[in-house]
Computed example of a mutant assay.
Amino acid sequence: MYGSFADIHCHLLPGIDDGASDLESSIAMAQMAVADGVHTIVVTPHQLGNFSRNQGDDIRQETILLQRVFAERRIPLEILPGADVRIEDGMIEKLLSGEVLSLGDHRRHVLLELPHELYFPLEKVLQSLEREGMTGILSHPERNQGILRDPSLLEPLVDQGCLMQVTAGSLMGTFGSRSQELAEWMLEHGLVHFVATDAHGVKARRPLMSRAYDRIVELVGEAVAGDLCTINPELVACGKPIEGGVRATPRRGWSGFFSAKKVG
């Protein structure tokens, strides 16, 4: 196990969305993450959609307060402000004003959330972000029902510069066999740039990375696992660019493993 991870998608802030319910839950999640080898987390409460009440300045302040608690408890975890942003009209303007947060608050990478049940074209959103010097990271595409029905949507998005974040639990079957198969297929075809926990608590959807890291090693090797679980998320946390596009990886053949028809 690599043993030193950064997590760019985690619902760690207490009482702000459907993640940690209170401060003690946040502390328990942080302790679990550290024990599993996580050293940095970008906190990503939901913004826009059903969580339009979550404002950028409130998230920034809550992040500072929670970091102080971790320091008092001697929990060796760095946290940075961010958001899991539902794609909707006016999103770009709110990102530019700071009302909606980019990852690490660097205005470089934006974690984009589609509705779970459908896919809609992202090309214009990605172009608008690019014009403002920002890059979109699509949150858990392997769990989106529209993409599950048509995985061929993914490669053109990656070719356009969209980065892909797969959920650690998807690689362990937490979200079902179809999502697991798609996550593994994406890995083996070089379509994943990050693995993150999307953690919501300590009993279900936990802040754990190590088992997913080990699974990535099995599928595509240690170098890729290190990039997806450590190096790339650390670069995002620091506001630095990462290499996008489709990467060359060891891959299985198409036959007998995965096809759009099988997933659909």
Rank of each mutant, 00 (worst) to 15 (best):
L95K: 00
F120D: 11
S152R: 14
Y119M: 04
E93K: 15
L101C: 13
H109I: 03
Q180S: 13
G98F: 02
H106Q: 09
W185Y: 14
G146P: 06
F175N: 10
Q145T: 00
H189E: 12
E88K: 10
Q160W: 02
A168Q: 05
V85D: 09
L171I: 06
D159C: 11
P115Y: 03
L129A: 01
L148M: 14
Q127F: 15
G98R: 04
D159P: 02
L182G: 05
M186W: 04
P156I: 07
R86D: 11
G104K: 05
D105F: 12
W185K: 06
V192T: 07
S152H: 09
V166A: 11
L171W: 02
E188H: 03
K94F: 08
F194E: 02
G82W: 03
P81S: 09
L103H: 04
E188I: 00
V166F: 06
V166T: 13
H109D: 04
C162E: 01
P115D: 04
V195F: 03
T135Q: 01
S179V: 01
E123C: 02
P121I: 05
W185A: 11
S128Q: 15
M134V: 12
D159V: 14
R131W: 12
E117A: 13
I147W: 08
V195A: 00
L191K: 08
G133Q: 08
L118F: 14
V192W: 01
G82M: 04
S152K: 13
H106K: 11
V125H: 13
A183D: 08
L129G: 03
L138S: 05
G169D: 05
Q145W: 07
G82H: 01
R143Q: 09
L191E: 05
C162W: 07
I92R: 09
L126A: 14
S102D: 02
P156F: 10
C162H: 00
L157M: 15
G190V: 07
L154C: 06
I92V: 15
L153F: 12
S128W: 08
G176I: 11
D159Y: 13
L112W: 03
I147Y: 10
T167L: 06
H116M: 13
E142L: 01
D84M: 02
V100F: 07
V192Y: 03
M164W: 07
